[in-house]
């Protein structure tokens, strides 16, 4: 039985977690960057539209609440945009780039930034947005009854939390599916170039 267990262990341990090969890696990096650049354009557009809409709808300079809320929402979007624009991946069009240590380092760093943006900055964005909206509501809904205001504040906060919770979970799962194997493969390649 002892030998049998050893044989089983040998067979068992031959399986390895799947990782992308060089060609797939290039395709994945380029696909990821194409998607990220679409995302950047969309968020930039959303930023401009949101700011324009808020300036148009809110009598900004008539209320300290409005200007504070507006500033928080704008700050949230600016932080997210800076993060998105700062970790752009370099386009990969030649396979020999994967032997370049500096190139590999940059790609790994960019991918790690993405993880941090999802894990931390999306929540920073959500909380700033929530604070901004609630501060605007303090003035905008001042004519409503207390219960009506509480429902509006609670509803908006809950809505943001649910949307962001769902979004972050989805992104993290994608991260586990794509980014982790990518980073590991790039790190292996980096080690190979050093060794």
């Amino acid at each position: 039985m002892k030998d049998e267990l050893k044989n089983w262990q040998q067979s068992w341990q031959q399986e390895k977690a799947p990782l992308p090969d060089s060609n797939t890696l290039l395709q994945m990096l380029n696909k990821m960057e194409a998607k990220a650049s679409r995302e950047r354009v969309l968020i930039l557009l959303a930023f401009v539209l949101t700011i324009g809409f808020l300036i148009w709808v809110l009598p900004l300079f008539q209320s300290a609440y409005f200007i504070t809320g507006f500033s928080l929402i704008a700050l949230a979007m600016v932080i997210l945009l800076i993060r998105l624009f700062m970790h752009k991946l370099r386009p990969v069009n030649r396979i020999d780039l994967l032997d370049n240590k500096t190139f590999l380092q940059q790609q790994i760093k960019s991918l790690r930034w993405r993880m941090r943006t999802t894990a931390v900055y999306m929540w920073v964005y959500a909380f700033l947005l929530m604070a901004g909206i609630n501060i605007v509501y303090l003035d905008a809904l001042s004519d409503l009854s207390l219960s009506g205001r509480l429902v509006a504040h609670g509803g908006a906060s809950l809505f943001i939390l649910i949307i962001f919770g769902w979004g972050v979970r989805k992104r993290l799962k994608k991260y586990c599916q794509e980014l982790l194997p990518l980073i590991t493969t790039l790190e292996d390649m980096q080690q190979a170039t050093e060794g």
């Binding site: 031959q14 799947p18 990782l19 090969d21 797939t24």
Partner: peptide, 10 residues
């Protein structure tokens, strides 16, 4: 969707 990950069994 998962077809992009290659099998790396040894």
């Amino acid at each position: 969707e998962l077809t992009h990950l290659h099998d790396h069994r040894v």
